[in-house]
Write a protein that binds this DNA or RNA. Structure first.
Length: 294
DNA sequence: CGTAGAGAGATGACCATGAT
DNA sequence: ATCATGGTCATCTCTCTACG
């Protein structure tokens, strides 16, 4: 059976589900919710049936959870679902990978932390962290074998995401909060249009800032969205033209495969970590304001 | 199995300084 | 003059192990 992505996309976005009153129109709501689950399932199948077929139970669970917790204020439902699914899928794959690759192998948290520290130190000093020389040195320093160093590296790279998409109160994070938790919609799920809308919003807000704030914020923003563009040339070309785009940070983020921490960026600008954190926080608030005024 | 404690980031309070 | 931004300190939050 083949699925038509555009068709399901349309069905999802035009569904009357979220305009129904959950209590007063229970039957209609239930009917639409059921349909929605089906649409979402078919939508994922349309995107990549081979990849997702084995996870139908999880897809349905995620869909139900999303319908339950979705707040229309936060953006498009399809995007909300995409991000949630990406995270769930990441967990599932991560579990499998850890089982297959590291079955029986154990490192203490201490060792993993030390390894991270070595990595970070080497990176800040500009050393190549994927060379055999680096491996040898770390192995020597930590008193473990080179093979174990490699395992540690892989384990750290496939860390389970701890950033949650839905918090305890059942409130979901908005698009921009997803940047913080490092949860991104799969690049093959992410809508170019949605991302574009979002990036425009960032740009408008950014352009209104005082000049003194811009350099650091450009770095913060770029580091946070760099991984979003994963293998998507269209999106990448779009981002490159943005006023907040910082090429250097972008390249570096991709090279590392993870966000450059706000702390590190703050240091480069000679400001205190708390300051960068606050700058980012108030910027997010400004984005919200811009969004409401649009 | 539950929990204390560590690590690390986020942020609130308060004050100083800078931009407009 | 007024509002935005930044520094400092203290505290909160979240996650993850080790330990009892």
């Amino acid at each position: 059976m083949s699925y038509d992505k555009d068709e399901y996309e349309k069905l999802i976005s035009t569904s009357p589900l979220f305009s129904l009153d959950k209590e007063k129109q229970r039957i209609a709501y239930k009917r639409e919710a059921l349909k929605m689950v089906e649409y979402l399932y078919c939508y994922l199948m349309a995107i990549n049936a081979v990849k997702y077929e084995a996870f139908s139970v999880e897809i349905v669970d995620t869909a139900k959870r999303c319908i339950e917790n979705y707040n229309p204020e936060a953006g498009h439902f399809i995007n909300y679902f995409s991000a949630a699914w990406k995270q769930t899928y990441g967990h599932l794959v991560g579990k499998e990978l850890v089982k297959d690759t590291f079955g029986g192998m154990h490192f203490t948290e201490e060792e993993a932390r030390n390894f991270r520290k070595y990595m970070r130190l080497a990176q800040t000093k500009g050393f190549n962290t994927v060379s055999s020389e680096f491996d040898e040195r770390v192995a020597d320093a930590m008193g473990i074998t080179i093979a174990e160093v490699n395992s540690l590296r892989s384990m750290i790279n496939c860390k389970p995401t701890s950033g949650r998409y839905i918090n305890d109160e059942g409130e979901e994070y908005s698009f921009i909060d997803q940047l913080d938790s490092g949860v991104y919609a799969d690049s093959d799920i992410l809508h170019f249009e949605t991302a574009k809308e979002f990036l425009d919003l960032i740009e408008i807000t950014f352009d209104q800032l005082q000049e003194r704030q811009k350099p650091m914020l450009a770095m913060l923003i770029t580091s946070k969205i760099a991984l979003l563009t994963n293998e998507d040339d269209k999106l990448l070309n779009f981002i490159r033209k943005k006023t907040f785009f910082d090429g250097e940070v972008f390249e570096e983020s991709l090279k590392r495969g993870e966000q450059i921490q706000a702390k590190e960026i703050a240091k480069r600008f000679g400001v205190v970590e708390a300051s960068a954190s606050r700058t980012w926080k108030s910027f997010k608030e400004k984005i919200e304001t811009t969004r409401k005024n649009e």
